[in-house]
Design a protein around this nucleic acid. Structure first.
Lengths: 262, 262
DNA sequence: GTCGGAAGTG
DNA sequence: CACTTCCGAC
């Protein structure tokens, strides 16, 4: 089974990129972030025609996540609220960043972690808080079920220096501050391991390049799109790859897909 | 000598269209309207590299005119104020619609006549007033000098029924009302003749097609971009042509160039 | 309806 | 640099 994650930066603008990619890469599950469209306007049929069931959780202009799956998903839920209950959603589910569903006893959890804007800003604090809530969410979900998890998405965090093209120059940069890394490590402490690092340990592999200052052609990249697996699934993983080819197309997303097979 | 006029509807969006066109059509003078950019951001060097001297009179987002010339222009001025003096500019030069300069003893006057929006509206009245001021401007300029004039630009007026694809359906339409036609005839009465009509008298030749409802592919056009010449220059004119090819490109301006040779 | 630019976010 | 919405223009 293959699961891919891809921040597409607008499903509508990237429509042909995504359908073309799926035809060459008929993954079982595709998790998308930054769809940037309300559910009513989501171009579902384009993907249904390719044989996918489409699950969406979108909003106007910002954020928005979706899961496409060749077989129907079970136990679908959107946002933190269905799992955590209470009023947590009033603060955290206004932004549509979380969608989950189960296929083959494996729970797919698709995330779009807040970007954080600038260190110390309100958005930065929100990102750190959001990651705390995420840990609760994952822990609760894991305790409730005996499912294996594939937690994937755009984390907007490079966990290690080798995940950044110029770590020295990025020591106090958004997406690589100690606080962000610690917050993500704390999430992973519930029992999640990075599928990519099972196979590739060296530096210089990236999933995102800034549109600005020719980030891609100078390979000034970051590895911030991740697939994290619970132990049994991690053991079963047989490959994890970044496909940089969509980033080379005309009008690309700034992110490129990452695919795990298990 | 060849002089062309072209409402480009944003110099920045049309940059490659214009440079490509100039390479195939190395006219001596190109008059542009609706450049839609402040002078600071005008992409001058792209045209200087092609051997043109660039004279610009722009504003933010709307209007804006420019003249490119293979040889330097003399006696350049922008707006009505330098010629008419007084406070006329407070009302009329806020919108950047007039630029002029002299080459080979011929004065090029490049105009972007107000569109007029809807009949009877404030903008419609402004258009009619603007044309009265234009007449004063041209008369004053002509009395001051012994130059021949080439008065060109987007006039937003189709002078005759045969300049419209469907004159019957446009009897009370902006750009062809009797008042607009009369106002333009009044301007021309100072001694200006339509270069295009020296060569082509039949109907069905257009320089503008509405973006809406597939105006171009259905050839629902208007001839509203004109080159008017004073008598001696008119006698010397050897051709005047509309080049519809740029209108066929991807993301075209809604107008296409008109070229006179004398 | 179909453009273009502006402002805000990433 | 590239998205979005909003708005003005035509």
């Amino acid at each position: 089974m293959q699961v891919a994650t891809w921040n597409v930066n607008s499903i509508r603008t990237r429509l042909t990129h995504i359908t073309n990619w799926l035809q060459s890469n008929p993954v079982d599950v595709l998790c998308l972030q930054e769809t940037k469209v309300i559910d009513e306007d989501f171009p579902k049929s384009n993907f249904e025609e390719l044989g996918y069931h489409v699950y969406i959780y979108g909003q106007k202009a910002y954020n928005g996540v979706a899961i496409f799956s060749r077989t129907p998903l079970n136990d679908i839920s959107m946002g933190f609220t269905p799992i955590l209950g209470g009023t947590i959603g009033e603060k955290f589910d206004v932004q549509k960043r979380v969608i989950t569903g189960v296929v083959n006893k494996t729970r797919i959890i698709n995330l779009y972690v807040p970007n954080g804007s600038e260190i110390g800003s309100e958005k930065y604090e929100f990102k750190l808080l959001w990651l705390e809530v995420l840990k609760d969410y994952l822990k609760t979900l894991r305790d409730q079920t005996s499912q294996e998890f594939c937690v994937c998405g755009d984390f907007n965090i490079a966990l290690e220096d080798k995940d950044i093209y110029d770590p020295k120059g990025k020591e106090n940069h958004i997406m690589s501050t100690p606080a962000e890394r610690q917050a993500l490590q704390n999430v992973l402490s519930i029992g999640l391991k990075d599928a990519f690092r099972k196979f590739i340990t060296e530096e210089g592999h990236f999933s995102w390049w800034d549109y600005r200052s020719a980030g891609f052609i100078r390979n000034r990249g970051w590895r911030i799109d991740h697939l994290y697996l619970t132990p049994k699934l991690y053991e079963k993983a047989i490959s994890c790859k970044i496909d940089i080819s969509p980033r080379k197309l005309e009008k690309p997303s700034d992110h490129t897909p990452v695919i795990v097979e298990f």
